[in-house]
Nucleic acid binder design. Structure first.
Lengths: 248, 248
DNA sequence: GGTTGACTGTGACGCTACGTCAACTTTTAC
DNA sequence: GTAAAAGTTGACGTAGCGTCACAGTCAACC
């Protein structure tokens, strides 16, 4: 008993393109190829295809499926590894959803924007130091223009972003990550991106700001509410980031 | 005041490659291009880039961001649309995780496999009708061989798959979907794929099976426990699917 | 025997948002 | 003057196929 590619596809509820794809990957080679080049499959192929589709429904990648089918990996082990990835993805999604809905909810509530709350405890647009040196005397005015150019939703999002970053630092601190770790540095990259909305983060600015996070109780409180020691982690992470990526 | 691509990228916490990409999409064109071909950006560019990165962090796609920045769409509207997509994705993920973990848990529990439970109330490998006509007398034996070829995890997954399919039918029924709807037909495609593990679903087989789902109380109970009327929906959906895709 | 229609084959592009070379030119620094 | 740093365009890779385009094969009907 032998089927053409279309027949097998229909029997298994998939498409011929998919079967060609699997053939190309070596995941499901045809059992026979006719002189005309046609692919033919037998019952064994159908069984193998079933296992492939079953595992694919669980979200496994095709290379992982290939290993399972070839007996190189145990199905249960592969699934356990896989479910961890799914969990991570779910958490990432959940945080993103929370971030967006919070932004929206605040926006719809028509909540007033308070400058102090918008930032990490400090209005960087008004920080005269580096800013005025770099931008001249109209820097302040432009900072205001920038701020007014944002829609309400974006203002809220901007605020939310800072809260998210602080929360992520807090989680990393709890998890015992070092300031040099990729994980923490990734947060710092977002942190710098966020900062750069309002000022130009140079090496000196970043290091100095980090010091202030620890020295000034307003900043410290802002970060340490996510867990004691977070502000210190932030400071160290900023120093590492500045030395790796920034100049001036 | 003007920056090179690298300077802008560092200021905003992103990469020059990203800026070139945005330039290519027309999302963030350079304000000036030197005779040497170098891209130069100004303060407006930075502000625009900030808005882009902010929305990107919320998970919006670049085309959607472009519409928001160009004022074609309201930020809040875009975010609300977006959050619905995120929710859907989260539900999909949650179901998949549940499916995998349930499979694993049952496997670890060493639960006995009962043939009746494995299927939708009917052991298709033993259905003598179409099967023997098509496969001859050793069909039965091959069905058994197929079954034994599966690992424990896969047996459980197979079982779980049927439960998931029935549950999805139930949800679709509750939501009032018609048998012809894309949503229901997509479930039926999975249903047929599942069936084809054990038998060869021809047009006649599928239609007949659908009738049995409604006529035989064991089947009906199996589907209607997800909501009254589900079995009927399944029957109609199978008929539609069979006439659209199958022959014999 | 010719035409039609259903299938088949092999490429190859598209999708997301860039990362990562490669090959080559310009600017900057010593 | 030369080498390092930064700039350019171009192209591939990513996951898993969907979707043409172009061409050959096969069974059926007139």
């Amino acid at each position: 008993m032998e089927w053409s590619i279309q027949e097998l596809a229909r029997a298994a509820g998939t498409t011929s393109r998919t079967l060609r794809h699997y053939g190309q990957l070596g995941l499901l080679p045809p059992t026979r190829i006719g002189r005309n080049g046609y692919r033919y499959y037998d019952r064994e192929s159908l069984l193998r295809l079933q296992r492939i589709l079953l595992l694919r429904e669980l979200g496994l990648g095709l290379p992982a499926i290939a290993e399972v089918l070839d007996g190189q990996r145990d199905t249960a082990v592969a699934l356990r590894t896989h479910v961890r990835l799914l969990e991570q993805e779910r958490q990432r999604l959940a945080r993103q959803i929370e971030s967006v809905t919070t932004t929206l909810r605040r926006m719809e509530g028509g909540e007033q924007l308070m400058a102090e709350e918008m930032f990490d405890g400090f209005d960087h647009t008004r920080y005269a130091g580096e800013v005025t040196q770099r931008w001249g005397r109209d820097a302040w005015e432009k900072g205001d223009r920038w701020w007014r150019s944002l829609s309400d939703a974006e203002k809220k999002a901007f605020q939310q972003q800072q809260l998210d970053i602080a929360a992520d630092y807090g989680r990393a601190c709890l998890a015992g990550r070092s300031p040099e770790s990729d994980e923490v540095q990734a947060i710092t990259r977002r942190h710098v991106a966020w900062l750069s909305s309002t000022t130009t983060p140079t090496k000196g600015y970043l290091v100095g700001l980090g010091e202030m996070y620890v020295a000034d109780p307003r900043f410290t409180a802002n970060y340490d509410r996510h867990g004691a020691g977070t502000a210190v982690l932030v400071r160290d992470a900023m120093k590492v980031y500045a030395e790796r990526h920034l100049r001036d």
